[in-house]
């Protein structure tokens, strides 16, 4: 089974090579890249294209590795014992399955997304080494060992906030999503808005890439913001001529592209110049 991209996701050849390597050898794939370049969407698309269920585990700063496996709710059990509930005699009633456990149960193989792994504590990836390697873990409370029926495809995303440990990296394939260039971007927009007017697309991309070149922006607009913006443009029926007239001022509906007043100020300061195709 191979992943060849999908009708709603434009995948570059190096991305395809990485996904297929991870799929064939059943090892995790680590995906890095600027925010908004489609790291999380990739998992959804791969799952859809392969017809496998997707389990998304969104990591937060407080997430522990154990949360992905299972949690034992001791407090609930203690409280039930006080109230004399009959459930209390079976410890299994208080074991809550994590996303990884659920992914292990799927017989046809699942897609497991571990999103923003760098948000968690610096030791978090190390705590998952064995589980990702062997795709099994032990539940101490019940004494059973959970083993994956079929090794799931594990996609891990990172925003580069923390360096990941070497031992963890060695076990993964790695892919870095670069910010799409103009042609790829035109393709991506085309996938999301089939039949978009050629001239509108050209003007919008010119303004968008010009905006990314404005120095000092805190958050450069990315693919997802561009798609939102174009959706608005199409919905509000903004004509290509209106966009062509924008020079030195804010483009219409710019709230979809720039999200902070500092960025708007920076834009006013240095002025927007259109990026020409080279």
């Amino acid at each position: 089974m191979r992943f060849t991209g999908s009708d709603s996701y434009v995948a570059t050849p190096d991305l395809l090579a990485a996904v297929n390597a991870a799929l064939t050898l059943e090892r995790p794939l680590l995906v890095k890249g600027e925010p908004g370049t489609g790291k999380t969407v990739l998992a959804e698309e791969v799952a859809r294209a392969l017809g496998r269920p997707l389990f998304a585990w969104h990591v937060k700063s407080t997430t522990k590795a154990q949360h992905g496996l299972y949690e034992y709710d001791a407090v609930a059990r203690l409280r039930d014992s006080q109230l004399g509930d009959a459930k209390v005699h079976d410890v299994r009633n208080y074991i809550r399955r994590g996303r990884m456990w659920e992914a292990f149960l799927v017989e046809t193989g699942a897609v497991l997304l571990i999103d923003e792994v760098d948000k968690a504590d610096i030791e978090f990836p190390n705590d998952l080494l064995l589980e990702l390697d062997r795709m099994e873990f032990h539940v101490h409370e019940t004494g059973e060992t959970i083993r994956a029926k079929k090794r799931p495809l594990v996609l891990i995303t990172s925003n580069n906030e923390k360096e990941l440990p070497d031992a963890f990296l060695r076990r993964c394939f790695f892919h870095y999503i670069r910010f799409p260039d103009r042609d790829v971007m035109a393709k991506i927009v085309g996938v999301h808005f089939p039949g978009i007017e050629e001239s509108l697309l050209r003007e919008a991309l010119g303004l968008f890439f010009g905006l990314r070149d404005v120095p000092g922006l805190k958050k450069k607009p990315s693919t997802s913001e561009l798609l939102d913006w174009i959706k608005l443009l199409v919905h509000e029926c903004v004509s290509p001529e209106t966009l062509a007239k924008v020079e030195g001022s804010l483009p219409p509906l710019s709230g979809a592209l720039l999200k902070s007043e500092q960025d708007l100020a920076a834009l006013k300061h240095s002025g927007l110049r259109r990026s020409r195709r080279v």
Binding site: D14, A17, A21, L25
Partner: peptide, 23 residues
Amino acid sequence: AGVADFDVEGFYHLARTTLVKDE
């Protein structure tokens, strides 16, 4: 396992995703 498809560019992508873990 035949991931690379026997062309140089495919091999390049495969080797990069396998051997390099930092952009």
